[in-house]
Design a protein around this nucleic acid. Sequence first.
DNA 1: TTTCTGACA
DNA 2: TGTCAGAA
Length: 144
Amino acid sequence: MAELEGNDAFIDTNKLIFGIGQVQQITGVSGRQLRYWEEQGYIQSISQKKGAAREYSMHTLFFIFHVTRFLRSGFTLQAAVDRAKKFDRQLPVLREFLRSQLKGVDFDKDQSVLDFGYVDSSHTQRIYGVVKDGETFFRIENVD
DNA sequence: TTTCTGACA
DNA sequence: TGTCAGAA
């Protein structure tokens, strides 16, 4: 089982800035909408002063992307934003859990196996997450 | 050329 | 929300 490398970031994602034109191309949201959403307080641009060109953080870009997904699902703008915010709060938790609990990933011919380590402190069982044929499920195995 | 604000449909 | 005008 290969060990997972440390998660030290090589790129400071906080320095990845996007202009409104780039956001339009990437998310498909029009500049008119982006300005309106900001005016309504749904999104924020980096220090939006006077007539200066707006700049968006990568985090905001992701947020906008998620809002559009919920909009396509039929939610109102307000509801889509609420959903996106909720999703945003979940990400750090998911990342923390995976970073600390995922021990490694094995790739077999017909399946991928995620090693989540021991089930408890007794270290008698190990739990795996399996991805096979488009399905996902857990598997617990006794440790020799 | 791109973006900004304001305004009209 | 799209689009247009006039100004950075």
